[in-house]
Design a protein around this nucleic acid. Structure first.
Lengths: 216, 216
DNA sequence: TAGATTGTTAATCGATTAACAATC
DNA sequence: TAGATTGTTAATCGATTAACAATC
């Protein structure tokens, strides 16, 4: 596994490769060339070969790539073998949706506990897990492996809870609050900005409206 | 509103600008320079000025930018004045979460109806909206303004439903299925790939683990 | 006016694409 | 072997940063 600096542009494409390769595997395709894959994905073959060669030569001249091997290797690069354990903090609608999303399990992530500070929610069962009280958080993390905290709490609590889980030694935070969470700690953070994505859609729709108007 | 081609890199930053400016407004800051904003956002002042000047000169030499005006202008560029109307298709956990997410309303989007094909869910009230049966879809769209379809349905139904709403004249699709939805139609599509985001987090966590191991 | 900060051009940096020798 | 396709270097393209004249 090479360690020359890999750009974020490349890293962000890896899950997409993983997805397409998984689909191909399901279709029992066991061999693919960068050209064929490029046509399916709508990117250039050159980019695919460039991207993959950041991590090593997974292909074979004259043959292409073995789908199963390539999928497994990309999985490794993405760290799937770690089988990361995640807790959800915030048992609201978004917490519920995440807890019930089976794809994460397919990708090797497991949700091991759900927390909420609302006593009415504590004890409720969500996807086979009883919601735990927030004041059991420290105790739980001390006694169980937890790698990731998924934050689906209201905006105003987010920073404070992020600090709290970071101080408990969590390695990653997946944040659903509409803020750019940043911590001094060595914790990796991914901010999911749902409304940003919706607004980009709005931009593109609006642009089309303006263009249609202009072309009258 | 200029129409020289604006790159996607710039467009994707616009909601983020909007977010920071809204926060500043709430703090009653009414003036900001590109330098101050750059420090808050962790990007260069140069980039901010470059980005904004794709759309026009919103600032004033020697002064900076008026927060309120700039926020409003970016809102316009993002098409917020359209007050887009959206329907949710799929009243499962994710549909529920989206329906209850108040931020979208703050950003000018409104959810006007929710559909599901499960008769047990039909009639259920979600955030003041009764879930409608899927076979009322055509009729509803004929009689009401609908700009966006938010798809929170299982993977296997996604393409088919996308085609269906596209043929009904919808202008945009916000897709939560883990697939790259593409249509021949003139419909704008944004695919939200939650698990891709989680896997990028996994990549970064794994990289840190490898590095820590290596530095022993 | 002097100071500050934009708008914009030019320079740099990085990412994508093209090309082709290596090789299966 | 001949054909195909990779891995990789070089060329191109685009995005970011730096610099500064314009101007509030």
């Amino acid at each position: 596994m090479d360690d020359k600096k890999v750009s974020m542009a490349v890293v962000k494409r890896l899950p997409r490769y993983y997805r397409y390769l998984t689909d191909l595997l399901k279709l029992e395709v066991n061999r693919i060339s960068s050209k064929e894959l490029s046509e399916k994905m709508g990117i250039t073959a050159s980019q695919i070969r460039q991207d993959l060669n950041c991590f090593g030569g997974f292909g074979q001249q004259g043959y292409g790539y073995n789908v199963e091997i390539l999928q497994r290797e990309i999985g490794k690069i993405l760290g799937m073998q770690n089988k990361f354990k995640a807790i959800i903090i915030g048992a609201g609608n978004m917490g519920n949706a995440i807890a019930n999303y089976s794809l994460f399990a397919e990708r090797g992530y497991s949700i091991v506990a759900i927390f909420d500070n609302n006593t009415e929610k504590v004890g409720k069962i969500i996807n086979n897990l009883a919601v735990l009280d927030m004041n059991e958080l420290e105790n739980y993390i001390k006694n169980n492996r937890v790698d990731i905290a998924i934050l689906t709490v209201p905006f105003q609590y987010t920073s404070q809870i992020a600090e709290r889980v970071a101080s408990l030694g969590i390695k990653g935070i997946w944040n659903f609050s509409p803020m750019d969470l940043r911590l001094s700690h060595e914790v990796k953070i991914e901010n999911v900005h749902l409304s940003d994505s919706l607004m980009v859609l709005g931009y593109r729709m609006n642009k089309k409206i303006e263009e249609d108007k202009a072309s009258l």
